[in-house]
């Protein structure tokens, strides 16, 4: 199991590096090498670390462990093909990490990040509509059942396209430098993780790499189906590049615009679900 965790972390960090590279190329900059985020993480691990006096010590450290545990659990659910509902429950638990990181810190920038994280709870709304539509179509939320459904009926990407759009939006809201990345916007330095440095920052980076990999892997498993490891990795890469294009071409929205867009998307998909449930 540990080999999957480490491999997924490195793959996620590599995807972060590719993300930065693609954004830079679109903006006419050379950008960092694609392995920069891996080097970044290793660099942070080697830095002198301590816990600031103004921070809440227990929470400051605990959120790092919780973050790793949440995304490790999500990866394990994917590997064992368990319930999609549990996977998304873990995703929502990630909010605790965002709040915890910001509120454990004594830095006002980190606290602002945590408050914005509360505001951006609307990013979970498209997730709800996505799960509902998947259940309505496949009749199950077990990953193995969803894969079996796709093996017979073809990818859910076609049948449940609005659900795919919703999950895409959810992933976009958790990607660095995205239009919905209000929790770590530059006007509040690095947002909720401004004061996490050294080993804590390195481990958070690794956990967030794992998060990116797990979310993209989930999208491929749920909407494209069983296509084998090489094609899955290719699909993840293509998905990441499309996200990078969106991030490069879209300015960061203000907190309330971000919430409005996410809520409107959920509303539209909810109407589609009602249409499917009542009329189709």
């Amino acid at each position: 199991m540990i080999e999957y965790i480490i491999a997924a972390m490195f793959a996620g960090l590599l995807l972060h590096g590719i993300h930065r590279k693609v954004i830079a190329r679109i903006q006419g900059r050379p950008g960092p090498p694609i392995w920069q985020e891996i080097l970044h993480t290793l660099k942070f691990l080697g830095k002198e670390s301590w816990i600031p006096k103004t921070a809440s010590q227990g929470v400051y450290v605990a959120v790092v462990g919780i973050s790793i545990a949440i995304w490790t659990a999500a990866l394990m659910l994917l590997i064992t093909q368990e319930s999609l509902l549990l996977l998304f429950a873990l995703y929502v638990l990630h909010k605790i990490v965002e709040h915890g990181i910001g509120l454990a810190s004594g830095s006002p920038y980190a606290k602002f990040g945590a408050i914005r994280s509360v505001v951006s709870a609307a990013s979970e709304l498209p997730l709800l509509s996505s799960v509902a539509l998947i259940y309505l179509i496949t009749g199950s939320l077990m990953l193995r059942d969803i894969e079996a459904y796709q093996a017979i009926n073809g990818p859910l990407l076609i049948v449940a396209f609005p659900a795919a759009v919703a999950l895409y939006l959810v992933i976009l809201s958790k990607i660095h430098y995205g239009p919905f990345s209000i929790v770590e916007a530059k006007e509040i330095v690095s947002g909720y993780w401004t004061e996490h440095f050294g080993v804590w920052r390195g481990l958070m980076n690794a956990a967030f790499g794992l998060k990116t990999f797990v979310l993209l892997y989930t999208f491929v498993v749920v909407f494209i189906g069983p296509i084998g490891l090489p094609l899955t990795l290719l699909a993840i890469l293509i998905l990441m590049i499309t996200l990078s294009f969106v991030c490069a071409a879209t300015p960061m929205l203000s907190p309330y615009d971000s919430v409005t867009v996410q809520t409107l998307t959920t509303g539209l998909i909810a109407i589609y679900i009602i249409y499917l449930g009542v009329f189709a």
Partner: peptide, 26 residues
Amino acid sequence: PVAAVLSIVLAPVFLISVGLLFSAEV
């Protein structure tokens, strides 16, 4: 599933302690 659950508990412990050892060199 048992191995997965135990790995979820142990992974943060392992990674945090390895991370602290890395920074301890400094």
